[in-house]
């Protein structure tokens, strides 16, 4: 047990970037994704879960910026996702994190579904991105974390959905902690990977097939996305069941 905890210190859940960079061919495309949101919403746990496959037993406040990486296969192409996990405290975002907005390919906004104030903080984070002049073409997704805490959910899906809709982002609700959600967490980042690979607009039924998870049917309907035709302002989206394809939308 102690050994495990010790090793956590060194093992940040990602691949060994040093060896993976060395071994990777120059052809491997690298996508830089910044993960932002208020303190304690689970940014570290989400990235750790995706890159390392497990929930870290002891996480600490992130100071500055941490880095995790995972190589994934998207329709036969090996691509590398670099996740920049940032500190949530406001003072860090104002002067330390700016450097990391440069050349990002995607943004993941995270809030805690059990804490309304972390959801209410989202507009500030969006403004933050705007301040760093991120192109509107850069894919953004909204992730509500800690959906396993059923009794304490305070941010209703409908509310989050409206917000996501207004900001033209797909919404996902998940839990980095719940082992049953591991495929879901992966699906979220894989959705982004597909999007980055294809650079198509994130519209309904436009999600690429996640063949990697094709053999395993997801049990829970937690992958949510917005389907909206450019002409339609209807934001009524039903929660869709993630199919064996990994993601889908039935809006």
């Amino acid at each position: 047990m102690e050994d495990k905890e010790e090793s956590m210190k060194k093992d940040d859940g990602g691949e060994d970037i040093l060896s993976s960079i060395e071994s990777s061919s120059k052809q491997t495309r690298i996508f830089k994704i910044i993960v932002i949101g208020d303190s304690n919403v689970g940014k570290t746990c989400l990235t750790f879960r995706f890159c390392g496959g497990k929930f870290p037993e002891k996480t600490e406040a992130t100071i500055g910026v941490d880095f995790r990486e995972k190589t994934v296969d998207v329709n036969g192409e090996t691509i590398k996702l670099q996740l920049w996990d940032t500190a949530g405290q406001e003072r860090f975002r104002k002067s330390m994190v700016q450097h990391y907005y440069r050349n990002v390919h995607a943004v993941v906004f995270v809030y805690d579904m059990t804490k309304m104030n972390t959801f209410e903080g989202m507009p500030t984070w969006i403004e933050e991105c705007e301040r760093h002049s991120l192109s509107p073409d850069i894919p953004r997704i909204l992730v509500g974390n800690k959906c396993d805490m059923n009794q304490k959910i305070s941010v209703a899906t409908s509310l989050a959905q409206k917000f996501a809709d207004a900001n033209q982002m797909p919404l996902f609700e998940t839990s980095a902690k719940d082992d049953n959600e591991v495929d879901n967490v992966s699906a979220i980042f894989m959705t982004l990977a597909h999007k980055l690979k294809s650079q198509k607009p994130m519209m309904s039924n436009d999600y690429p097939v996640l063949h990697k998870y094709g053999s395993k049917e997801m049990k829970r309907a937690k992958v949510i996305s917005i389907g909206r035709e450019p002409s339609s302002r209807s934001a009524v989206c039903s929660r869709s069941t993630a199919t064996s394809d990994g993601t889908s939308c039935s809006c």
Binding site: M8, S39, N40, T59
Partner: peptide, 17 residues
């Protein structure tokens, strides 16, 4: 509030065991 969040997560700073 921030102090509480951070201290609650600082388990690794205490002696193992």
């Amino acid at each position: 509030h921030q102090v509480v969040l951070d201290v609650n997560r600082s388990l690794r700073r205490f002696p193992p065991g």
